[in-house]
Design a protein around this nucleic acid. Sequence first.
DNA 1: GCCGTTTTCGGCCCGACTGTTTTCAGTCG
Length: 600
Amino acid sequence: MAGKGAKPKKEPLAPPPADLPPAPGIGNMSLAGTMQEIAAMLELKGENRFKIQSYRRAADTLLNMPEDIRAIWRQGRLEDLPNIGEAIAGKIDELLRTGRLQFYERLRAEIPPGVLALTAIPDVGPKTALALYQALGVTSIADLETALAAGRGPEVPGLGAKSLERLRESIAAVKQRAADQRALLAVARPLARQIIDQLRGSGLPIDQIDMAGSIRRGRATIGDMDILCTSPQPQRIVDFFIALPIVGAVVGHGGNKATVRLRNGLQVDLMVLPPEHFGALLHHFTGSREHNIQMRDRALSRGLKLNEYGFDRPDGTRILCAREEDVFATLGLPWIPPELREGAGEIEAAGRGRLPHLVTVADIKGDLHNHSKWSDGTATIEEMARAARDRGYQYMAITDHSQSLTIAGGLTVDQIRQQAAEVAEVNRQLAPFRVLHGVELEIKTDGTLDYPDAVLASLDIVVASVHQGLRHEAERVTQRVIDACRNPHVDIIGHPTGQILNSREPSGLDVAALIAVARTTGTALEINASPERLDLNEIYTRQAVEAQVLLAVDTDSHHPEGFANVEYGITVARRGWAQAADILTTWPLDKVLAWLQQRQ
DNA sequence: GCCGTTTTCGGCCCGACTGTTTTCAGTCG
C-alpha cells in the first residue's frame, strides 16, 4: 500500500529534463482552454459524459490553481493536482514538452469545423448541433439562419415547429448579444445594490434580501444578476420589481420570480423564496458550479443529498437551511466567504479550520498610486489628499506619469522637482496626514527606466509600469518588467499585465517569473483597483500570496471619487485569498515609511 | 477520465424546464 496521504500511482510521470524549457505561450489559462475544447469536442462525439466532465474539472483546476503549472510540471507533480490523473497529466506534459497535442489534433480533424460554434446558440447543445449539421449541412450560425429562412428545418429529427421557432429567436438573441459584453463588476454591483435598496424602500414586507451568483462572489465581469429575497407577499414584490424605472423590458414573470432586462442590457432574475429555504437557495445560486459539486460530494460522503432546498436524508426527511451558515454547519464547516467559492481548495481549508482571514476595505489605510493635474488627473494634489484623508486614510502617494508618456502629460525631471515643493506645502497643511511624493515611472520599450537613478532616489516612492510595447513578445515584456523590478529604487510594479477588461488582453508577461523575482527583491506587486483593470487578477494574486510577495491595492485615481474603487481591488485580493498583512496599503504610515526606508 | 478515512471498481451533483421521440432526452444554471 502507498503511504498515507499520497495518491497511490503505479508509475508517476517522470519530470522533464532539467534543461528542457516549457513550450512558449503555454500556461494555466491556455491549457485550461485546450481541456475545455477537448471536452466540447468529446461531447459532440457523444463520448461518456463522465469522461467529458473529467476534462472540464481539469480545466477548472487549471483556472483556479494558485501555482504556475509549468513549475508543477518541472517538479514532476502534475498528478498531485486534483482532477488531474495519469491520462490528463500525460497530455499536459506532451503540450509543455512539444507545444502540441496529438489527441487534440485528431479530435479537431474529426469534428466538422464550425459545428462547435452552433452550441453558442441558447438551447443548442452538442446533440442539437450535430443533428443540425447532419440534416442541413450547416457549419455556422449564419448558415443555419439562411437555411431556416429558406424554410428548411422540419427535416431535422427531434425538432418540431415550436423548437424551430425558438431556434430563430435564439439566433436573433445571440447576434444581439455578440455586440454586448459582460458587465464590469463596478457597473453591475451598484445596480444590484440600487435594486435591493429600492425593494427595501418599497414599504412591502421583505425579510431577507441578497444578491447571489458571480456578482456576490465578486467576479471581475458579470453575465447576469440574481437577487433573492423572502417575503410573505411574493406577488407584490414581483409586481413592484418589474415596474422599476431602471427596468427596460420584462422577459418573463410569475408569482414568485421575474426576469427583466435593464435599460443598459443587463439581465436580472429576482426570486422570492420561502424563508425556511433561503439559506440553501442562497448557497445554491451563489455557486460556483465547481464549489457546488464539491459541497454535494461532501454531503454524499455523509449520507446526505444536498439540493437547493436543503439536505435530503436517506429516510426521505429533509434538513432545512434558513441561513447559509446552516448549509455549511451541516457538513461540519464554517461559513465560507462567497469570494472563495470557486472549488479551489476552500472546502478543504474550511474543513481544517484553515480559511484565511480575508482582507476588508476597512483594513485599508492608504493608497500608493494616484494622479493629479500635474499629469493626466483632474484634481490638485491638495484635493486628492483631502479626499483620501476624508476616507480615514493616513497617507496617499501622488505618482504622476513620467516624461516618456507624453500622451498623459508625463513630467520632466524639472517638473517633478517643482512638484516636490507643492507636496511639501500640502503636507504642512494636512499633517499628520502624509502625501508621499512619487512617480508612475515608465518602463520604456527598450527596457530602461524613464528617470535616472539619482532622481528616483530623491522620491518617496516609485511605481514602475508598462504602458507602451505591451504587444512585445512575451520574453521581451517579461525581461523589461523583471529588470525594473530589480532596480532597488522601484518599490511597486503597477498594473503588471496591462489588461483592460473587455478590450485589451494582458501582455505576454510571465507573471510567475515576476513573482519569483519580486520575492527576492522585496518589490510589491500592484492590484490595480481601477474597475476596468483589476490587474493583478485573482489567480496571480493567490500565486503572489502563496509566494509571500507583498501586494499593494491601489486605485490609480485620477480624481477624488476614484478612491472608492478600492472596493474592487479588495474584492480581487479576497478572491486571491489575501489577508491584511499581505497588503502593503493596509499597513499604518510608520510601517510603510520604515519599509520604504529599508528599501533605499 | 478521476477518485478512495467503507472502495483500485464502480461510482460520478442536482433539479427545473421544455418539447415531443407518450416515458424521456436535451439543455441549462
